[in-house]
Design a protein around this nucleic acid. Structure first.
Lengths: 329, 329
DNA sequence: ATGGTTCGAGGGAGCGCTCCCTGACTTGGA
DNA sequence: TCCAAGTCAGGGAGCGCTCCCTCGAACCAT
């Protein structure tokens, strides 16, 4: 069960370690004859370079930490976002030859672990996924001196990619008003997240501009919280005729509450969500929502990080928002 | 930007490298005075052990590969399962001090990459998530001689944890018959997956036993495929009065098709799903389904792997199935 | 033919840590 | 008092790889 070393390959091929190393790493200054004999030895021995040894010598790991905030907190407490983002990020990173180390950052403990892990030199870079605004992690990681990017803007600014939360909310609310809705409520995400804040700001902005009153309930991006918040809103203002939920999952919860309360959608109450997850197609009625291209989003964030490795720009990227009109509003 | 080494700590503390190493690794044979002076030096220098160096010396990595099959193929093409499993597995592995390297196994390419990665000694163990029955990966990995477990049974057997697919399907179909349904159809998962096969076997088993005809359409565990399959079934047998979908996502798709076709659920057609994802609560009507405890499932798989590290048993584990009756059947 | 270049292979010093082994010192028993 | 046994700190040889440097060979121009 003893794995062959580079030295064993060298011995078998009758060349020096250096030459084997060159062949393995694709150096061009190698005579074809040597390359060939080395490659054969590699094949015969089933040689695979030892990762740790290589990392030690090169001081690079070819790995990237994908740090995702864990429920109950965090935008990605919702499944669709979690899987879309993690999947797409993994795909792109793997395609770029980077290994993905997944880390959940929930408790303070786990944050410390992430920091330690990064400090230990395990990874060449870090991709954060929608951390909370007040999160300490971005700052403490940035100090380590390795490239770090964030999907979703963070407070102590690290390079990020975000979608146009403000513009999206604006779009949604204007749509509702254009349909003649007068009392438009909103269900927000957790307010320590910048995305939630921006979506709320977009909502209040339009209402203020058009001289409407805002009706706000706070959720946490989960279905249950959407259902609860909707109940709350109906109690606060039984006459409301529209709801803008800061994400689709909460919109789904809201739909349920509305149905239970005997309100028809969209006749009595119009509902608009945000994100355009697949499930938005399958609600009754199908959900009108702000499309945010999760996969593109994750992809762009990976690109930003890969760019940083190459000394590229750390300019933030903003993805445009777009309203998808279905039947709920 | 030069990170302190163990040697620097030793110098600062005025002791040998060995002593520092002992303190860092919590050896008991260290005088309190030395331990203290070392710890202070560590603190002052902000020392963090270099991971690669340690891995090289110990030949252990403290990392585990979490290999998940990527869409379009694979049970976990569905979000809820993906996130529940990945999340829970990560949590437990991290709690056990293991790092999680996430790898998507989609194409043949990526399978080769996984194999190479494991061979490179990057990880101490591998956790597979519901690979296809015919997958080559389990076999090729098993040959590397490191612990490997699978969530969901695989064909060349590696130690696994699975839920009782057969029993669950049995439960579901009997429930439908008990309600007086006569023409019970099924929508299967991809048939190269063992889970799909077992659920189908459970279905046909009961029908044969009770002298009913089976009506089968093949899906792939996605919502869309469920909707398509349902259309197919309605065409094949317009008189059917019940459907057992091999997972909830397809059940959701089926519900939509039924609604579009003007069939009332459960009055005209009863629907039962499998998995009990959160969304099953939010369909109209809420979905009757076989509960499979994803998180427990993932957790048990992690436990199996951790057990293997300690020389524990490789006995497969089977989780019991349970029917959750809601309104759709 | 000779000196100057260029090119490519080999040698070997690390990378930072662990862990075995040695040896100084302490302790206990005879 | 002396020796055997037991502790515990230090020394140093690896772990497997990279990469700088040296050096020989081949080639060109003079």
């Amino acid at each position: 069960m003893n794995r062959p070393t580079l030295e064993a390959v060298a011995a078998r091929a009758g060349v020096s370690k250096s030459s084997v190393s060159r062949v393995i790493n694709g150096a061009t200054t190698v005579a074809p004859s040597i390359r060939e004999v080395v490659l054969r030895a590699v094949r015969e021995l089933g040689y695979v370079p030892h990762a740790a040894a290589r990392n030690l010598a090169t001081r690079r790991t070819n790995a990237v930490a994908l740090v995702v905030s864990d429920p109950p907190k965090g935008l990605v407490s919702d499944d669709p976002m979690f899987s879309a983002v993690v999947r797409q990020a993994s795909r792109k990173l793997e395609a770029a030859g980077k290994q993905v180390v997944l880390m959940l950052a929930g408790s303070e403990d786990s944050r410390a672990r992430v920091a330690r892990y990064v400090a230990a030199g395990h990874v060449d870079g870090v991709m954060l996924v929608s951390m909370h605004g007040a999160d300490s992690l971005p700052a403490s990681l940035a100090r380590k001196g390795i490239p770090i990017v964030s999907l979703g803007r963070t407070n102590p600014a690290v390079p990020y990619v975000d979608n146009d939360n403000l513009g999206g909310a604006d779009l949604a609310v204007r749509h509702l008003l254009r349909q003649g809705r007068r009392r438009v409520a909103t269900i927000t995400g957790p307010l320590d997240m910048i995305a939630s804040q921006e979506r709320l700001t977009g909502y209040t902005g339009v209402l203020r501009e058009t001289g409407h009153r805002s009706i706000v309930a706070i959720g946490d991006f989960t279905r249950v919280s959407g259902a609860d918040a909707m109940r709350q809103l109906l109690q606060d203002d039984p006459g409301l005729d529209a709801v803008f939920a800061a994400n689709d999952l909460m919109a789904v919860g809201a739909l349920r509450t509305l149905r239970e309360a005997g309100r028809r959608v969209p006749d009595d109450v119009a509902v608009v969500g945000f994100d355009d997850i697949e499930a938005a197609l399958y609600t009754t009625p199908p959900l009108t929502t702000v499309h945010s291209p999760m996969a593109d989003w994750a992809g762009a964030t990976v690109d930003l990080l890969l760019g940083l490795f190459e000394g590229g720009t750390d300019e933030p990227v903003l993805l445009p928002a777009e309203l998808v009109v279905r039947e709920s509003a």
